[in-house]
């Protein structure tokens, strides 16, 4: 039997969280089908069909799927679930919202946020903010999984030539309706996939300082900007900048933590980064214990100096 990947998309294009899930699915040695549930989402379906390893795209096009409401999308996935051994989605806010609903309706225990697949029923996942890793064996069928995108290489965007099947919608549940959204606009790379992330903490003291110092440095490095929970709670930046146990999990090539002390909840979101740089005025800050390069000093002096030095 094939496996099903629930694609995250914005009706036009696939979100980058989808490709690592397809790559994880390819470790299960079965045909991979991808569900595109959306509204006027033919472009996303076509894109999914080209991803390496995908043999079939199931395309449900209906206004009720335009914003990915869990109630309606859950009902649709349950309707097609019986044909699959595994159902996978990214462990992004999208997948986290929908998949447990699907699992409960199928009477199976979801396995969340897997970081490795050992066999078709055995998976590794972080617990306690990544301070431990559990290897667990599921007895349920089908297996409902969310996949940590940074733990798997992205499947190639080209190379597949899947068929695209139109499928029927499930009934509108009438439980929830979409009112609106406020998305953070940015010309910079997306935090979840950027090669370089610079993150700031409470050390900045104000939103004005945060933006004034971080933006030129981010532009200079072509980096995405992240933040600690403390900086988000203090209102320096919007919530979607938060890196950590309950925010975003990132694993860039270079992570520069500035004015972040390094609470375990923050480390849980970034310690898989390839190279970590810590800049903090407190030489005892825990962040230095996991950093490849540490620099003790005042961020208000170091950041402009760094930006200037990079320019030359």
């Amino acid at each position: 039997m094939p496996v099903l990947v629930i694609a995250e998309h914005d009706n036009n294009t696939l979100k980058v969280s989808t490709h690592p899930v397809i790559s994880a699915a390819s470790q299960l040695d079965a045909d991979i089908h991808v569900l595109i549930a959306g509204s006027n989402a033919a472009a996303a379906a076509e894109e999914a069909g080209k991803v390496s390893g995908v043999v079939k795209v199931l395309h449900a096009d209906d206004a009720i799927y335009a914003q990915g409401l869990a109630e309606n999308l859950g009902a649709l996935i349950v309707q097609i679930a019986k044909d699959y051994t595994h159902i996978l989605a990214p462990a992004s806010f999208f997948g986290k919202n929908i998949m447990p609903r699907v699992a409960a309706l199928l009477d199976v225990q979801q396995i969340s946020d897997i970081t490795a697949i050992e066999s078709s029923d055995t998976f590794v996942r972080p617990i306690y903010a990544g301070n431990a890793f559990a290897t667990i064996q599921s007895t349920d069928s089908p297996k409902v999984l969310t996949v940590r995108p940074t733990s798997f290489d992205a499947a190639a965007a080209e190379g597949g030539s899947a068929s695209i099947d139109q499928i029927d919608s499930a009934a509108e549940t009438g439980l929830a309706s979409f009112v609106g959204q406020e998305l953070t606009k940015s010309e910079r790379p997306e935090l979840a996939i950027a090669d370089i992330v610079i993150s700031g903490g409470r050390g900045f003291g104000s939103a004005e300082n945060f933006n004034k110092l971080m933006e030129p440095l981010a532009d200079r490095l072509g980096a995405a900007i992240g933040a600690s929970r403390a900086a988000v709670d203090a209102g320096y930046v919007p919530n979607d900048y938060q890196v950590g146990q309950t925010g975003k999990i990132v694993a860039p090539k270079l992570y520069i933590a500035i004015g972040i002390s390094g609470a375990i909840q923050h480390l849980a979101g970034m310690k898989d980064s390839k190279v970590i740089v810590a800049i903090n005025k407190d030489e005892e800050a825990p962040i230095f214990s996991i950093a490849d390069y540490g620099l003790v000093g005042d961020l208000f002096e170091i950041i402009p100096e760094l930006e200037k030095a990079l320019a030359s």
Binding site: K15, S17, Q67, L69, S92, F93, F94, L175, A176, S177, F178, V179, G180, Q181, E182, L183, T184, A192, P238, N239, D240, K248
Partner: peptide, 11 residues
Amino acid sequence: EIDGGLETLKL
């Protein structure tokens, strides 16, 4: 709270 910002739903 969603990946790119905030979303409002009526339930």
